[in-house]
Amino acid sequence: MKTVTLTLNKQPELYLECNDITPDAFAGKTPAEIAAIEIWEGKQKIPLGDFFTVEGSAGATPAETKIVVAGDCTRVKRIGQQMTDGEIVIESDVDMYIGGWMKGGTIHVKGNADSFCGIGMEGGELIIDGDAGHHVGAAPRGEWRGMKGGVIRIGGNVGNDTATFINGGTIVIGGDADIHISTHGEGGTVIVKGNAKGRVGGQMVKGEIYVFGTIENPLPGFKKIETVERDVEGVQAQFDHFIGDLGERHPKSKGQPVYAHLYVKA
């Protein structure tokens, strides 16, 4: 695997939209060609080289390409959007839409990420060491076919509306989660290692949620049916098992009604 290092050398006046900082766009290109890739600042197209110094070289294919983004990227959006393979490491905090519509490969953010990271994700792995904003792994606006696969790991806390319309894949939150988890969910798994604020699993039809801490305001649409022992993320523990959302429709599978499952550590 070959590595391209991008270093942000000046702060943009507006925010930079860098959906072409992906192994897919970089693969097979020389550093000069990479520097010529156009990014957006507001309504203007600007060569990537105007803001970033480009060092190293890209691999022949996305799978053989690693991108390291250094410098303070708090005003940089959309890195890794729709990437299919390869690796991206972001050394600092970063703005919105990191790893949006990602299909494969890995992204590792060593700081915090703003909202919409991993939105519409289909595959791959997105790791954020710090906190993330709202709409982590959620469906894009209007879309009812949300996250389909892949893994998102957030080290810290997340904002609200995590995993809206989730259909598959896994989201692990190391800290606390604000309101609305897996709203309208029809699959997938969300694990909250800290506390959840409320509206957990609202209108959820299928899928799983694990909460290691407490839910401040649980929904009345979830009913406790048993206490079970589970091994979740390497932790063996007793969980209270709830089914729901009882206010939603319940499709049938092999004659049995399907419910969403919520497990809260007992």
């Binding site: 729709q82 519509w101 894009p140 606006r141 209007g142 879309e143």
Partner: peptide, 9 residues
């Protein structure tokens, strides 16, 4: 208005 997803990409 209610199908923004149809205009995405």
């Amino acid at each position: 208005l209610f199908r923004p997803e149809e205009k995405l990409f």
